[in-house]
Simulated scan of single mutants.
Amino acid sequence: MLILYGFDVSNYFNMVKLALAYKELDYKKHTLYPNQSTEFLALSPMGKVPVLETTQGCLCETSVMMEYLDVLHSERPLYPGDDFAKAKIKELVKLCELYIELPARRCYPEVFFGQQVSLETKKEVKRALFKGIEGLARTAKFSPYLAGSEFSAADIMFLYSADMAAIVMQKAFDIDLLALAPGATELMARLKEMPQVQQIAADRKVANVDFQKYIASLS
């Protein structure tokens, strides 16, 4: 039995949840926040979530988990197509993660938690997100999905990366990030209509109550 460690407010945790739900794989959920305990570091070398426990051991890093799940269960593939098509999907996954999700994360403290972020950091984030979404627009097909006609791992990474980044751009800079990539707004709406995505959103709303208590306990 697969065991997924993490919490329902985490966008990376929800990426793996969507992959599991889309592929209709059974698993157990173990709610856990990032920590540096000896016990958890034995599962996750950096103390990060999510972590996927398998019968052979544990895996960390979301993109690695999605690739593993695709090998484990080939039906409803997350990386459809020939070897080159699979590589292009992996390319899109990395573009979303490295140039949209990670830059936006630097402004999370201010946008989501009411903390202060330096003006220089915000300028850097704004520049990085412009470059990231423009790069994605040059690479993605949006026909209607990111890599073409079929849903893929790239759409999962886009959904939970670009959605958060769009909130950052709107609240911090009053800019519509998705409008900068033709087809991105429509794709985001399509993805949010998926029953699995709607269930994950409902789970996130419920879990946010405990998450806010957890954040308050850190201060």
Rank of each mutant, 00 (worst) to 15 (best):
M1R: 10
L4H: 09
D8F: 03
V9Y: 00
V9T: 15
N11I: 08
Y12S: 10
V16A: 06
K17M: 13
L18A: 06
L18T: 06
L20A: 09
A21Y: 14
A21Q: 11
A21I: 02
Y22V: 04
E24T: 12
L25F: 05
K29I: 12
Y33P: 11
Y33A: 04
P34D: 01
P34T: 00
S37D: 08
E39S: 11
F40C: 02
L41G: 10
L41F: 03
L43N: 09
L43V: 12
S44L: 06
V49F: 00
P50H: 00
L52G: 07
E53P: 04
T55W: 00
Q56C: 02
Q56I: 05
G57T: 08
G57A: 02
L59T: 11
L59P: 13
C60I: 13
M66H: 07
Y68M: 04
Y68D: 11
V71F: 03
V71M: 04
L72Q: 10
S74A: 11
S74V: 15
S74E: 12
P77C: 10
Y79P: 06
G81Y: 05
D83G: 00
I89G: 08
V93E: 12
L95G: 00
C96W: 03
E101I: 02
R105T: 12
R106Y: 07
R106E: 15
R106F: 10
R106I: 01
C107L: 15
F112K: 09
Q115E: 14
Q116N: 11
S118W: 03
S118G: 15
S118R: 07
E120Y: 00
K122W: 05
K126T: 09
I133T: 06
E134A: 03
L136T: 12
A137H: 13
T139S: 14
T139Q: 12
A140P: 06
F142D: 08
S143F: 06
P144L: 13
Y145N: 08
A147P: 07
A147S: 14
G148D: 10
E150I: 05
S152P: 10
I156Q: 01
M157L: 10
L159W: 01
S161T: 14
M164Q: 12
M164F: 10
M164E: 14
M164Y: 08
V168M: 05
Q170T: 04
I175V: 15
L178D: 10
G183S: 05
M188I: 02
R190S: 11
R190K: 14
L191A: 04
K192C: 11
P195E: 01
Q198R: 15
Q199F: 04
I200Q: 01
A202P: 03
R204Y: 02
R204V: 07
V206Q: 12
F211M: 02
F211A: 05
Q212H: 05
Y214V: 01
Y214P: 02
A216D: 14
S219K: 09
